[in-house]
Amino acid sequence: MVKKRQILVIGHNTNGCTPEHEKIAYDVGMEIAKSNSVLICGGLGGVMTAAAHGASDGGGLTIGIIPQNDPSMANEFCDIVIPTGMGLARDFLNALSADGVIIIGGGSGTLSETAAAYMYKKPMVAIRNLGGPVVPFIDGFIDQRENVKIIGVDTAQEAVKKILELITA
């Protein structure tokens, strides 16, 4: 049996998540399901809910790695919930669980997950023109180590296509 690819989707939680973010996240989730990959997210609201919803509607498997210790805190579209009880430290679990990361806008939590993925040299793709703290690093590196370039794309379809190329490269 071949291991399924695991793609982490990160971005705005409920606060700051716009209908545009939700639509793109939903489409990313749908594309992940179509690719027969597993969607991993932080399991909460905003981009996480929308991406898990898209993957669920596409018949895919969704995993929510939540910071709380109560699994009922996860959004309704998480097939598997991993309640860590670790608070924000769970950002490292999210990054380490992924073969690749797709970034959709976001805030400081997204930046934390991005930095964790960067330190572990996980392939990353960010969707352009959605704001967030990762904007200055799109098509570049976070620091002088140049661990992994954050590739900018314009659509959900491009994001999944590119992350799959980077994972299998």
Rank of each mutant, 00 (worst) to 15 (best):
Arg90Asp: 15
Leu111Pro: 11
Ser97Gln: 03
Asn94Trp: 01
Ile82Asp: 10
Ser108Gln: 10
Ile82Glu: 08
Glu76Met: 13
Ser56Gly: 11
Leu88Gly: 12
Thr62Trp: 10
Thr84Phe: 10
Gln68Trp: 14
Gly109Met: 06
Ser97Trp: 02
Asn69Gly: 15
Leu88Val: 11
Asp91Ser: 10
Ile63Leu: 10
Met73Thr: 13
Phe77Gly: 07
Leu39Ser: 08
Ala52His: 03
Asn69Glu: 14
Ser72Cys: 03
Phe92Val: 07
Ala51Ser: 15
Thr49His: 15
Asn75Met: 03
Met86Glu: 15
Ser108Phe: 10
Gly60Ala: 00
Ala95Met: 06
Thr110Gln: 11
Gly54Glu: 00
Met48Val: 05
Gly42Pro: 03
Gly105Ile: 15
Asn75His: 07
Gly54Trp: 00
Gly59Phe: 05
Asp91Tyr: 03
Gly87Thr: 07
Asn69Tyr: 15
Leu39Gly: 04
Thr62Tyr: 08
Val101Ile: 05
Gly64Met: 02
Leu44Pro: 00
Gly59Ala: 08
Gly109Cys: 06
Gly107Ile: 05
Gly42Lys: 02
Asp79His: 14
Leu96Cys: 03
Gly54Ile: 01
Gly105Asp: 07
Gly107Ser: 14
Leu111Phe: 13
Arg90Val: 08
Ile102Thr: 09
Met48Gly: 09
Gly54Lys: 01
Ala98Gln: 00
Thr84Val: 05
Ala95Cys: 02
Pro71Asn: 15
Phe77Leu: 08
Val38His: 09
Met86Ile: 05
Asp70Ile: 11
Thr114Ala: 13
Glu113Trp: 01
Leu44Cys: 09
Cys78Tyr: 05
Met73Ala: 14
Ile82Met: 15
Asp57Thr: 06
Ser97Met: 04
His53Thr: 04
Asn69Arg: 04
Asp99Val: 07
Gly54Asp: 01
Arg90Tyr: 07
Asp99Gly: 05
Val81Cys: 06
Cys41Pro: 00
Thr110Cys: 08
Val38Asp: 03
Gly60Leu: 00
Asp91Gly: 09
Ala51Gln: 04
Ile104Val: 10
Gly45Pro: 01
Gly46Ile: 10
Ser108Glu: 05
Ser108Ile: 07
Ile63Thr: 04
Val38Met: 12
Met48His: 12
Ser56Gln: 08
Leu111Cys: 13
Glu76Tyr: 13
Thr114Met: 15
Ala115Cys: 05
Gly60Glu: 01
Ala55Asn: 15
Thr62Asp: 10
Cys41Gly: 11
Gly85Trp: 06
Gly107Ala: 15
